[in-house]
Design a protein around this nucleic acid. Sequence first.
RNA 1: GGCGGCGUAGCCAAGUGGUAAGGCAGAGCUCUGCAAAAGCUCCAUUCAGCGGUUCAAAUCCGCUCGCCGCCUCCA
Length: 488
Amino acid sequence: MALRVYNTLSARKEEFVPLTPGEVKMYVCGVTVYDHSHIGHARANVVFDVIYRYLRTRYAVTYVRNYTDIDDKIINRANKEGVTYDVISERYIRAFDEDMERLGLVKPTIEPKATEHIGEIIAIVQRLIDKGFAYPAGGDVYFCVEKFDSYLKLSKRNLDEMQAGARIEVDERKRHPMDFALWKEAKPGEPFWDSPWGKGRPGWHIECSAMSMKYLGESFDIHGGGKDLIFPHHENEIAQSEAANGKPFVKYWLHNGFVNINAEKMSKSLGNFFTIKEVLEKYDPEVLRFFLLSAHYRSPLDFSDQNLAEAGAGLERIYSALAAIARFDGEMAGDDVPAGTEAERELHEKLGGFMGRFEQAMDDDFNTAQSLGIVFELIRAVNRVLTEDGGESVAARAMFAAVRKAVAGVGEVLGVFTSEPGAYLERIKGRKVAGMEMSAAEIEQLIEERAAARAAKNFARSDEIRDYLLSRSILLLDGPQGTTWKVK
RNA sequence: GGCGGCGUAGCCAAGUGGUAAGGCAGAGCUCUGCAAAAGCUCCAUUCAGCGGUUCAAAUCCGCUCGCCGCCUCCA
């Protein structure tokens, strides 16, 4: 089945056909590095990480994700701290890289920095001036939006209406209020690069045009970012790039939805944001990732403790099942092992359609929420075989091996289920225990005491211990191999 | 004011013309000394509301209500 993606430019789902068969060139706007990244950044980056991972299974993908390492906010922060701009940008590039690594993102093919492409930026600005799309004004250079006919085709607005609602301070040197800066003259004390228009630095949007053009060419397949970048950032990128090159810039524009807090957008200006660092102190990175993929990437996603806890419960259910089948070291035996019981037949059926259904979900505009539902269905079938038949049969063992392989395959695309199941469960347990007043050793000791009481049929004492532990959120699980415990 | 999106069970969330996935929570049963976990069964005659198109609509169209986003830096 063919991959279909929602293209912001056409405002609908389209079949994905790369410009060059077999190859995909993809650019995603990274972060402006002036502070720690928050959950909204986590979502955008995880979403495009999954898109990249999925595309990789079918195409030779070149994935570029930039760092915008020169900008007003970086300069402001540097001034506040009394350091140079690059101290700030380097610090937060490291912080971003750390966050992304913890969230299990694969590295893009290329991670260029704006400041390393000043020459390319100047060349484009010059070309735009030569072609009459831009004009110098003082030490600034502006892009002339009226010269670019299809301006606002991505955000689907029109210039006149924009003016009516605009609250921007109009610079006298601009010919049209919506003209935007390609190059900004350096004020005293600001970092600068030499240019034909004097000392200055790039405007906000031009760096993405320069870097995408350099690494992916004048026309490429996919450009991504958060919904809030549609205007003005991506709109202006289109204007600059298409005016300079005289050809279509990007074929498919993909935009992810916001992370909300109480149904409101998480943002710096509202002050209602959580940094990735803070959240990872409380939740396992894989739980956060699982949560971010539990909704379709274009939908808004409400961030709350309850929702994170639910994601954690779901992920734990999957890992528990994987841990339960880990002890069966069955071999892959193909489809020819006859399934005996009804539960085995059900598992066989779920297993047979699994990868196809997963791909179908992902082919429909990267529907990760649906794909997780498919995983849960498989897991239930596994658990059923486990409880009803014990999972000892040759057929069951063979299917368990296939389940492990299938889940690993899905995990490779989604970037979850990548831990060894037992290790994951221990990790989660350890995280919960760390926040409690009881140590694991104390718990183990009480469990031993309870085992002795049970052996002596002293159920009153046995239950007393269990209730006591339960009051401390410790749940006991009696199994054939003895008693284990987990934190509620 | 302009443009855009969303509203599916107690909660989260798929489904965009063919008769409501999945998860969390909850109830009953099996298992168990009793529990827990797991499994099984149940849990939306209905998709914000009202009209319309259609053999058929949560899905298409119109209107109403509610929420949100962009138009200023933002993932």
